[in-house]
Amino acid sequence: MKLRNIFLAPTAILMAVTMLAPLAIIMVYSLLTRGAYGGVELPWTIENFTRLWDPVYAVIFLRSFWIAAVATALCLVLGFPLAMFIARSGSRKNLYLSLVILPFWTSFLIRTYAWMFLLRDTGILNSLLQALRIIREPLSLLYNDGAVILGLVYGFLPFMVLPLYATLERLDPSLLEAAADLGARPRDTLVRVTFPLCAPGIRAGAILVFVPCLGTYLTSDLLGGSKTVMIGNLVQNQFTASRDWPFGAALSLALMAIAMVLLFAARKRGEEML
C-alpha cells in the first residue's frame, strides 16, 4: 500500500465514523416516526419535513435569519473601520491584529457568561445605573433579541475583521492614490474604490459570521433565555426534552441545507473559504 493511503486511512475512518455515519443516521431518522418512548419507529414518512412549514416553526426560522442578518450587518459596520485601522497601522499591525484574535483563544462560553454578568437585572450595568440614580428599577437587558445579537457580535466580530483585514492589506496603495489623483475625495475613494475592491473580503466575512450565527445554540440559550428561541435551540430541544428525534433530525438537515446553499453560493463566485 502506498504511504499516502496509509497516512489517510485513520482520518478516513474517523471522518466516516464521526461525520458521515451520524449524517446518514440523521437522514434515515428524519424519514421515520417518533417512537412512543422517544427513539424512532416505522413507518416511513415525510411528515417531519412538512412540519417545518408550520407557522410555529417558520417563525423561529425567520427570527433566526433576522438575528443572524442583523448580527452580520453589525459585525460588518463595526469591523470594517477596525480592519482599516489595523491595515494602516504600519509596524504595529501584528500587535493590533493579535488583540483582535486573542478572544479566539479564550473560552466562548466564558465570554458569553461575561455578558450575562454585565446585563443581568442585578448585573453590573443595572447596579451602576441604579447607584448613579439614573434608573430606579432595573432594566431588562438580558433575555431578549438584543442581548442575543450583542453576544453574537461580540463572539464573531473577529471572523469579520480577519478577512476584511486580509483584503485591505493586499489592496495596492497606488490604487487609492490614483483615485485621489483623479479627483476623488477620501469618502468617494472609500465608496467607489475601497469597498468594491474589498467585496471578496466582505463576502467571506459575511459568510463566516452569518452561517455560525444562524446555527447558534449557546448564545441564544444563555442570553436569549426562553424568549429568544432560534433554530439551534429548537434542535437541541427535540433531542433532549421533547424526545422527538425524527423532527430534530429534519430540523438539523434543514439547517445544514441552508448553510450549504449559502456556502456554495459564496464559493461559486470564486472565493476559496478554506
Binding site: 495596492d172 497606488s174 490604487l175 492614490e177 490614483a178 483615485a179 485621489a180 489623483d181 483623479l182 479627483g183 476623488a184 475625495r185 474604490v193 468594491p196 475592491l197 467585496a199
Partner: peptide
C-alpha cells in the same frame, strides 16, 4: 490634497481600477 491639484499621474504599476 491630491484631488485639488490640476496634475495627474501615470503610475509605474498603472494602478488601473480592476473592478
Amino acid at each position: 490634497p491630491p484631488y485639488r491639484r490640476n496634475v495627474n499621474t501615470v503610475f509605474q504599476s498603472y494602478a488601473l481600477f480592476p473592478h
